[in-house]
């Protein structure tokens, strides 16, 4: 990674100074040659140290006294192949929770954040409610919320309360994540300079119009990297709905583990979650980098 980043920086430098009818001077050429040499050496060092580390790690693990047993109980190819279809089917449920939950989290989070910025004495109860909600669900471990919602709601025996683990699990996740995302949104809203609000209000826009047209669009742009980061976290936390008995990827793996006394399905499920998370993580990186570039070029007012 370090090596690639360096190369990109140099490309930008050259692009920045190149113009029509301009040839680099001797001095510049020698500087470039020196930089290229440095870059080559960095690549070499990075390669060597990575290789060295990999060999050391491999030796340390495979020479451990328990390694043969660990290999058969955690990394059994045949068990992995057998469990794979079930786990993949389970992962489909996780994906559904992710998509539905993610959308609900965005809406709820934005709503809670907007309520917290409301002014006016009549709205005090709403504001207090939103604050209490955020404090409560940011502080409480997700797994406890899952237990309370998943087993508490149905226990009420009320008519119309859903009993499906999918719905209850999604509800618990939305409750917790909306509290986080609301705070992200609020930080974004507060990051918009007060002068923007002054400009909007002096044009005659009401508080709500100012929020909707001027503040929120700018806030959203600022918080997108942070939101994507929360999305990556959400992607793996949807696996926790298995504690409510939903047959998701984790639960499917658990079932196979129970049948075979082999832990390989957990590894398979874990790797599938990683595969799921990698594209979003890279997207988050790219968006963050873009936001940083924009800020550095001074184009943000």
């Amino acid at each position: 990674m370090a090596v690639r980043r360096r190369r990109r920086t140099r490309a930008q430098l050259t692009a920045g100074t190149a113009g029509a009818g301009w040839a680099p001077s001797e001095l510049e050429l020698s500087r470039r040659a020196w930089r290229r040499g440095r870059a080559r050496r960095s690549t070499l060092v990075a390669l060597l140290s990575t290789l060295l580390f990999a060999v050391a790690a491999y030796l340390a693990v495979t020479r451990a006294p328990g390694w043969p047993r660990v290999r058969t109980t955690f990394f059994s190819w045949s068990v992995a192949v057998d469990a794979f279809p079930d786990i993949l089917r389970g992962l489909w449920l996780n994906l559904q929770v992710l998509v539905v939950g993610g959308a609900l989290v965005l809406v709820t989070g934005l709503l809670v954040a907007s309520v917290r910025t409301l002014r006016g004495p009549a709205l005090a109860p709403l504001r207090i409610l939103a604050t209490v909600y955020v404090d409560l669900f940011r502080g409480m471990p997700l797994i406890i919320v899952l237990y309370l919602v998943g087993f508490g709601f149905p226990a009420l025996g009320l008519q119309g309360v859903p009993t499906s683990a999918f719905v209850l699990g999604t509800t618990a996740i939305v409750l917790v994540y909306s509290a986080y995302v609301a705070e992200v949104f609020r930080a974004g809203i507060e990051s918009v300079h007060p002068s923007q609000r002054a400009a909007a209000r002096s044009l005659g826009l009401t508080h709500r119009q100012t929020m909707r047209i001027v503040v929120l669009p700018q806030a959203l742009r600022t918080v997108t990297p942070a939101l994507l980061n929360d999305f990556v976290a959400l992607q793996k936390d949807v696996g926790l709905i298995s504690v409510l008995g939903a047959v998701d990827a984790v639960r499917s793996a658990q079932i196979v583990v129970g049948q075979t006394f082999n832990f390989t399905p957990y590894v398979v499920a874990g790797l599938l979650f990683v595969v799921l998370a990698v594209p979003s993580a890279r997207l988050a990186d790219a968006v963050t980098a873009r936001a940083r570039r924009r800020q550095q070029s001074g184009s943000l007012l």
């Binding site: 002068s195 923007q196 002054a198 400009a199 909007a200 002096s202 700018q218 943000l300 007012l301």
Partner: peptide, 10 residues
């Protein structure tokens, strides 16, 4: 109203 720092909406 026109401000010192323009305050256009970026």
């Amino acid at each position: 109203v026109v401000f010192q720092a323009y305050n256009l909406f970026p």
